[in-house]
Simulated assay, not measured.
Amino acid sequence: MDDPTPLEALQARHRKEQRDLVARSTQKKKSATKKTRKGVNDECERLEQELKERQAQELAELNGETTEDAPADPLEPADEVEANGLEADVEKLSLATSQPDAPAQPPSEQPAGPKKKQNRAKARLARRAAEQEALIAQAEEEAANMPDQREVEREQMKSHFGKYGLQEKEIRADGHCLYAAIADQMETSGLGLKPRIEPKIHEEQGLPVYKTVRHAAADFIEGNPDDFVPFMEEPINQYLQKIRNTGEWGGHMELLALAKTYGVRINVLHGDGRVDKIEPEGNPADAKEIWLGYYKHNFGLGEHYNSLRKTP
């Protein structure tokens, strides 16, 4: 098979970029919440416009043209573009394609005056724009038929609850979800929020309980820096400040610190049925257990933890 020409290779890449963008935009819109929907839609429109402009520029450069001032065909003089611009050319092209056998108007019915000759370079751009729109429509249809990852993950998670005797307690989807889920588990299981290193704040001060858990994690990391600093990408003081005083999400290091300071085994259930076990200090076989549910796709902010309580 002959190697593709530069134009064919460029068009193939453009088609793939268009399909990828539509698939990515569709998934973003499916995952959006009421609060984030407008921002997601604006972002998708911006990305689509940027892709169109870049691809048009690449096609023009390949043909030795520019999108602002495409040269006329050498055999015909350049004419002024009509007010409707590229959209009018696309519409004319679509009509001509859909009615190939339509008879020409009788001479008596044709409008009077000289007929303008179309700029062939602009006609090529119009044809490519029409092809691009068709590819986008096809990619949107393919993306619409893709499974909803949020719903799939939700159903998968529910299917595992019975196996472990669990029921889900929804936790607010914000940056505090890991700590709030831990607090719910410690309280409802009767274990209480009593870490090995007494936190510098107390819930009696009127602060939400997740704040106590945040400080418990930060204090344990601060007291055992050698176990955590090698995995940090920033100075430990900045890292601890984020845990204590911001809505920074928690992850594996914070789970490890909390398992050790509270002396509990933290089981994290995933949608695929996998259970990550974060062990307490010394890995005692008789350690108390608490359960969290980890979601990757199901909430607008991204990764999320819910509390999984034992069924009565």
Rank of each mutant, 00 (worst) to 15 (best):
G192R: 07
A144Q: 15
G162V: 07
A143D: 10
Q138Y: 08
R172E: 12
A139W: 01
L178H: 08
E140T: 12
H160M: 03
M157E: 04
D148W: 11
D174H: 10
Q167F: 04
E141F: 10
C177F: 04
E140G: 10
M157P: 09
D184G: 04
Q156C: 13
Q138H: 13
L191K: 07
Q138E: 15
R154V: 09
A180F: 01
Q156M: 14
K200I: 08
A173Y: 06
N145P: 04
D148R: 05
E151P: 00
D148M: 09
T188A: 13
K158D: 14
Q138D: 10
V152F: 00
Y179P: 00
Y179D: 06
I171H: 09
K200H: 13
I136T: 13
R172T: 14
I182G: 03
M186Y: 08
H160V: 10
A183C: 06
Q149P: 01
K194F: 11
N145Y: 01
M157G: 01
H160C: 04
M186T: 05
T188M: 08
R150P: 00
F161L: 15
S189C: 10
H202P: 01
S189E: 01
A181Y: 02
Q185M: 13
E204L: 10
K194R: 12
E142F: 06
D174Q: 04
H176A: 02
D148I: 09
L178Y: 03
E140L: 12
Q167C: 08
H160K: 12
A137W: 02
M146E: 15
M146A: 14
N145W: 04
Q138C: 06
Q156S: 11
Q156D: 14
R172M: 07
F161S: 03
G165A: 05
P199D: 04
E204H: 09
Q138L: 14
P195V: 14
G190Y: 06
I171F: 08
M157A: 11
A173E: 04
D174N: 11
D174C: 04
A144T: 09
L135T: 11
E140I: 01
E168I: 07
A143G: 15
M146I: 00
L166S: 05
E168M: 07
C177S: 02
P195W: 03
Q167L: 10
A183W: 09
K163E: 09
A173L: 09
M186P: 00
D174W: 00
E153L: 08
I182C: 00
K169G: 00
S189G: 15
A181V: 05
Y164M: 00
L191E: 05
G162D: 15
A137N: 13
D184K: 07
G162H: 07
I201F: 10
E187W: 08
L135W: 14
A139F: 06
F161P: 02
A173I: 05
L135M: 08
S159M: 09
N145C: 11
R196F: 13
K200C: 09
S159L: 07
E170T: 13
E155N: 11
H202G: 13
H176M: 05
L135P: 00
